[in-house]
Every structure is written in C-alpha cells, then in structure tokens.
C-alpha cells in the first residue's frame, strides 16, 4: 500500500530524514518507534504533504501512485489520514460541521453522494460512542477548550468517520492516562481490516500492548535502522534505544 524508498527530507534547510526506506503492505499494522528527534513526526508530515518539509531525494508511492506529486487534500481524499500529535483548534466551527464538510469534500472528490446533516449526525453519534465521546462535544467548536484526552479521542473519532485506507497515528498515546489509552486504542482497533493499513508512531511501548503491530521498525537519525516483529517493541522498552545505537554503530542491524 505504502512504499517509501530512500527518502530524504529537510525543514528550514536541515535534513531530518536521511534515506528512509519503508514498506507497509495492505492489511498490516506497522509501528515506528524511535527516540525524540529521530524524525518520526517528520515522516508523518512528509507522507501527508506538509508544506514546510522539502523532499530532496527518494520517493513515496501509495497504491502504486507517486504521492509526492499530489496536493495535501488529494492525498487525504485518496484515503490517507493523519491523527495529529497536536490537533489544531478551529474557533467558531463545530466539530460536527467541520467533520461533515471534510467527509463531503472527500465524497465529492470520489464521486460519492454527499451526506446531509441529519444522516451525518446519526452516524456521528454512533461512532462517538466507540471512543466514549459525549455527543454534546460534537456541537462545540473543534478542539477549542478540549482537554488533551478529548483532542486525541476526537482525532480517532474523525478517523472512524472518514474510514481511511492508510491511517498514520502520530504519538496518539502522548498525554493519555491508562484508561483513556485503552479507549483510544479500542477505537483504532475497530478500523483494523484486511483492506486497511496503519502506521503507529510512538516512542512508548505501552500503546502497542493495545494495538499489536504486525511489524515494528526502529527509526533513528532519519533512517529505519531495525525491523522486527511485535516483540521488538518490548525489547526496546527493556533495553532502551542505546542498545540499537550500538548495534548500528557496529554495523549489525543493517
């Protein structure tokens, strides 16, 4: 589904991704772990087309198509979703209105019928339950005054409505207590299917107790330096990243 080859990307002239290669087949959940500053968030933004990041080398293809040539919204309409680490506030625009506009923009682009406010609300209320989001929150301006936990739940709620083919979850666990984490992970897991893929970016292993990845990658200094199964996450939790660093230095991992 997603194929990244030798990706180099920089922001403000500083190279962050330095030859990253990653393959996410359809139906799989891949975790990307790595220490702070290794380029995890940069990777998620580059996949989604954030204008601050310049790709200097390499390629990203999505369903066989060159992703880098597509504007941000087109990538979204083709089924790529990013759960933001820091979701933005949009004062004056209700969460429900925002999401329905987004959903209809996607439907329109795909030639699917638009959904009216009443039908939308029915679906939205159902989906809100999945992440234990009070229905009243749908009428509040998007993310304005929401707690950190509410913001994350709203991100996942949006994901369940937009039903993306490729969901990128950027540090979705940060700032969540253990109960909220379980709820959010539950929401994410409802989206797991043989036709969808997920890229779970985190630097804690604890999220991966709830979202069990098919494959785990370690991202360091802008490159994937180690790939393994779900047990790799536990190993990292126990031994820390220094162990991988030493391996890389010794030329073992690659």
């Amino acid at each position: 589904m997603l194929s990244i080859k030798n990706l180099h990307a920089s922001v403000d002239g500083k190279e962050i991704l330095k030859g990253l290669t990653l393959e996410v087949p359809v139906g799989q959940v891949h975790a990307i772990m790595g220490p702070n500053g290794s380029g995890k968030s940069t990777l998620s933004r580059v996949i989604c087309g954030h204008p601050d990041y310049v790709v200097t080398e390499g390629s990203i293809t999505y369903e066989g198509v060159d992703l880098l040539a597509m504007p941000i919204e087109e990538r979204a309409r083709k089924g790529i979703f990013l759960s933001f680490q820091h979701p933005v506030e949009i004062p004056g625009i209700s969460t429900a209105y925002f999401l329905r506009s987004a959903l209809n923009a996607q439907h329109k682009a795909r030639g699917e019928p638009e959904i009216d406010a009443i039908d939308f609300l029915k679906v939205a209320k159902e989906k809100a339950k999945l992440v234990e989001l009070p229905a009243a929150l749908l009428n509040r301006p998007l993310n304005e005054g929401f707690s950190g936990g509410e913001k994350k739940r709203v991100e996942i709620f949006q994901m369940t409505i937009l039903e993306p083919k490729l969901a990128i979850l950027d540090e979705t666990d940060s700032g969540l207590d253990i109960d909220a984490l379980r709820v959010v992970a539950g929401g994410i897991n409802t989206m797991r299917s043989p036709t969808r893929s997920q890229l779970v970016i985190t630097h804690h292993q604890r999220l991966l107790d709830y979202i069990v990845p098919d494959v785990t990658h370690v991202l360091m200094d802008g490159r994937i330096v180690k790939t393994g199964g779900k047990e790799l996450a536990h190993e990292l939790e126990e031994k820390g990243y220094d162990w991988v660093k030493r391996e890389v230095a010794a030329g073992v991992a690659l």
Binding site: P51, I90, F98, S101, A102
Partner: peptide
C-alpha cells in the same frame, strides 16, 4: 496559521474551503 490550513487540508478540504472555514468560524458571532 499554516497549521490550521494543513490540518483542514489533511482532512480533505481544499485550501480555499479551509480559509473560508476558518474565517467563517472567526466571524460566527
């Protein structure tokens, strides 16, 4: 902010619709 626009567009809204949405929210009152 560029971040607001990026967020809206990441959800599938065009840049024009994103600005219009933010502006309309700003003027709602």
């Amino acid at each position: 902010s560029e971040d607001q626009l990026f967020y809206c567009r990441q959800r599938g809204l065009s840049a024009e619709d994103a600005v219009s949405l933010v502006v309309n929210g700003f003027c709602k009152q």
